[in-house]
């Protein structure tokens, strides 16, 4: 049991790390939101599952936390994306990659 729980905790850490890496690597805000939302949601679930296996008495609270994360996380992301879209932020296109590279080398 201990090993399975540790495995889930590690998995949660890996997904959260990938989310952070995605924030750094993605070229524009929409893609960053995508990387951030998905990775952090599953990462948090893995954490909660791991904690639940370590402390089975907490399952009810962990379930509530999971529910709140599941409901609020995507809403927050969509709201940010919507605000940016309405503010006129253009999604990054593949053609922009050349410009990015030129900027980097300038």
């Amino acid at each position: 049991m201990r090993w399975i729980a540790d495995g889930f905790l590690l998995l949660g850490a890996v997904f959260s790390f990938l989310g952070a890496l995605g924030l750094l690597r993605m070229p524009d805000v929409y893609n960053r939101i995508q990387a951030g939302t998905k990775a952090v949601t599953l990462g948090a679930f893995c954490f909660l599952l791991g904690v639940g296996l370590l402390y089975p008495a907490w399952w009810a609270k962990l379930l509530c936390i999971a529910g709140f994360i599941l409901l609020t996380n995507p809403i927050g992301s969509s709201t940010i994306a919507r605000a940016l879209y309405l503010a006129g932020v253009r999604p990054w296109q593949v053609e922009d990659r050349k410009m990015d590279l030129e900027k980097e080398h300038a």
């Binding site: 929409y30 995508q34 995507p74 809403i75 992301s77 969509s78 994306a81 919507r82 879209y85």
Partner: peptide, 12 residues
């Protein structure tokens, strides 16, 4: 919400 958490898509 579901679309936001689906592979490669984000509801704007």
């Amino acid at each position: 919400n579901s679309i936001t958490l689906t592979p490669g898509t984000l509801t704007v």
